[in-house]
Every structure is written in structure tokens, then in C-alpha cells.
Amino acid sequence: MDVINLVQARDPSFIQDVESESGQHVASCYQCGNCTAGCPAGFAYDMQAHQIMRGVQLGLKDQVLGAKSLWMCLSCSTCSQRCPNNIDVAAVMETLRHMARREGRVAVPRVNKFWLSFLDTVRYCGRTYELGVMALYMLRSLRVFTDVDLAPQALAKRKLDLIPHGAPDGGAEAVGRIVERYKKRCEREGVRP
């Protein structure tokens, strides 16, 4: 981590916002580092879980919402399980992801693009469609499919459906309407879907 000027960089309302949105008492973190010790994704983090918690306490909004870690987190809840102060650290990470997205700050765009591709297939089919997710993800990320080595096996074992299975009995349409309403509401409320 770089040296931070605490006088200039602090946003005192940040901890309140994070606490009320996540329902977690971040102030009670005493920096024992248990969350970080058990975090399986820590090796890919730029700020470790306990550093993120400290950053929230200190109001280092800019730095925390810009952390790659938010997007590398696997939501495995090991941190929450092991926190001696019963802070649901995984829930805090999730809240920070939501806040970062709303502010248009996505430090690892490819993870976000993957998620959006997944949700697109759900929106149109009502259910996940794996090949569709991959195609959309390739388009979004301009990355040639990184898993070409898996394709022969996946296809031979019929692991991938070649045509989407939409949710029957009006399910696909109902999901389309849910996503539509969600997007409209985001627009109304001025947040990024």
C-alpha cells in the first residue's frame, strides 16, 4: 500500500454508509487479521480483507472502492465465519462491490463483464445458458474464449447445451419483466444497473 495522507483522503460519512447498507458494525474490527488469514483469494488481492476493513473505518473511500480485491472476492464467507467480532466481512465486501459499481468504479472489468453476460442470458431465457454466457462475455471483453482447451471435452460429454432451455410456463417472460422493472427503477433512482 502507498502512504496515504489521512487528512486529505478521509470521507467520514463512508463508514456510516457502509455500516447502514451492510448492516455490519465495521467499527468493532480490531485488526486481528483472521479474515485475511483464511481468505482463499488473498493472493490475488491488492488490499487484504483486514486492510479493507481498516480503510472503511478510516473513511478511505476512494482507495477502498478502487480496490481490485472487491472483484476478486469469491463470496466464500470464510472471513465472516472466523471474525471474533462477528462481523460479516463477506457482506461488507458485497456492499462495497455494490457501492463501487454505483459509482462507476469497477477495478476488474472482466469479472463484472462476466457477471453481466450471465445476467443477460437469464434475462432472455429465464435460465442460465452457458454457451450464451461465453459468447456474450467474449464480445464484451474482446477476449477470445480462454477455455478453448476445455471445449472438446465439454462438448463430447454434452456438458453444454447447444440450444438454450428457456424457463417454460411463462417463466422466461416473467423474468424478463423482473429485469425490465429493475432497470427502470435504477434509471428512476439514478443508479447504474
Binding site: 458485497e94 457477471w115 437469464v122 435460465r127 424457463a167 417454460p168 417463466g171 423474468v175 444497473p193
Partner: peptide, 26 residues
């Protein structure tokens, strides 16, 4: 359950808690 839909999996809750809950609630 007839006409079930995707629960939204990780992507939905990573994007928005209410959207994820709506997909499940249906």
C-alpha cells in the same frame, strides 16, 4: 415447481441484492 427460473447465482447478488431476491422470490 412449474416454470422455475434461474436463482441469479453469484452474478445477481454481486450486482444487486434486490434483483437477486426477486429472482429467488418468484
Amino acid at each position: 415447481i412449474p416454470g422455475w427460473n434461474c436463482c441469479g447465482s453469484t452474478p445477481a447478488h454481486a450486482v444487486d441484492t434486490e434483483l437477486s431476491a426477486a429472482l429467488c422470490a418468484r
